[in-house]
């Protein structure tokens, strides 16, 4: 018989690194900002780049958040997520073009109201499309990743082609509303007004989402579903309904992000969603599949890094994202904030 293993509990306080561990990813955003400040010679251009990086990051987050939740909740990987961005942009921009009387007026209130209407229309349209997409495309292939990837990719192609049928193959140029054009000067740096609005909207959405997920009952069910779906079902909740709800909400958010992205770029094409998918995948992977906070941090990192690098060495901008992804996966192979899963 062997002796019982020695029982030696550690009573010491956890070290600083141990306590810091889970929060390290949060620190990455300020770290990148400081590095950018060191690398970029003029403070005013650094400020401009930081604001545009944050604006871009917020918009990417809005588009990516739905996808990461859908994956976390139901293990469904939606390669067709990008198409909601395109549809949202086209619906929203069409509404804005109809409301040109409101967008052309020099009043800030009227302009914001027009954008709000466009966003609501886009969110309703993409939410409905998301519901149909879930019904027709995703539902029959639960539990089979390979088929999910193929089928959602096929759905992306079909819907993208339908956009071309409905709106024509040409890209559509759109001007931002009158009072959101131009920039304000702050501390010698030119900050585009629209980017400030984008940062504000993104932050508000993130905080709202956090509130819903952390402080409401439905948020509790969603978070519990991500951790252990079977247990939640055993407790009597119909996870399927929750999932459909999250899918629709995620699609609507993607459509909302599509409108904002279209106004940011001032041009929309049917392929824009597909192009955005690349950034979204990078964000979702480095954030940790299924984690909303990780997605938020990842989006900010990607947005900031892309803007800094584009300023320092324009040709390296896209490669920098890949490099960031490789670096983070080397550090944490499951993404920055891995979601614990019992599945």
């Amino acid at each position: 018989m062997s002796a019982a293993p020695k029982h030696a509990p550690t009573m010491a306080k956890a070290s600083v690194m141990e306590r810091l561990g889970p929060w390290l990813p949060m620190l990455l955003v300020p770290v990148i900002m400081v590095l950018g400040l060191l690398a970029i010679p003029s403070t005013s251009s650094w400020l401009t780049l930081t604001v545009s990086g944050l604006a871009m990051g917020m918009m990417i987050f809005i588009m990516a958040s739905g996808m990461t939740l859908v994956f976390g909740l139901m293990d469904v990987i939606n390669f067709g997520h990008g198409v909601f961005i395109s549809v949202g942009a086209f619906v929203g921009v069409s509404v804005l073009l109809v409301l040109s009387g409101m967008t052309g007026a020099p009043s800030l209130m009227l302009n914001l109201l027009a954008i709000l209407l466009a966003i609501i229309a886009a969110a309703i349209a993409t939410g409905a499309l998301g519901w149909a997409f879930e019904r027709v495309i995703v539902k029959p292939v639960y539990g089979a990743h390979l088929k999910q990837i193929l089928v959602t990719m096929g759905g992306l192609i079909v819907v993208e082609q339908l956009i071309v049928v409905l709106w024509g193959p040409e890209e559509i140029y759109i001007l931002r509303p009158e009072s959101l054009q131009g920039a304000v000067t702050f501390a010698g740096a030119a900050l585009e007004k629209y980017r400030l609005v984008a940062v504000a909207v993104g932050l508000a959405l993130f905080l709202g989402m956090r509130y819903v997920l952390r402080s409401t009952k439905i948020g509790l069910i969603v978070r519990a579903g991500v951790e252990n779906g079977e247990m939640v079902e055993a407790l009597g909740y119909r996870l399927r309904l929750v999932f459909v709800g999250v899918f629709v909400a995620g699609s609507a958010l993607a459509g909302l992000g599509g409108v904002m992205w279209g106004l940011y770029q001032e041009v929309i094409t049917a392929h824009m969603g597909q192009q955005m998918m690349i950034l979204i995948f990078i964000v979702v992977i480095i954030g940790g599949l299924g984690s909303v906070e990780g997605c938020f941090i990842g989006a900010l990192l990607v947005g900031l890094l892309q803007n800094y690098i584009a300023f320092i060495e324009p040709k390296a901008a896209l490669i920098s994202n890949i490099a960031l992804m490789v670096a983070i996966l080397m550090w944490r192979p499951q993404g920055m904030i891995p979601v614990v899963k019992a599945k």
Partner: peptide, 24 residues
């Protein structure tokens, strides 16, 4: 990098890398 973690990453990462190479 990707197959080590989960095969599903592979699809996403290849998409990202391929588009980066095309731009390059």
């Amino acid at each position: 990098f990707s197959l080590r973690v989960r095969a599903i990453f592979f699809a996403m990462i290849t998409l990202a890398v391929a588009s980066a190479v095309a731009v390059l």
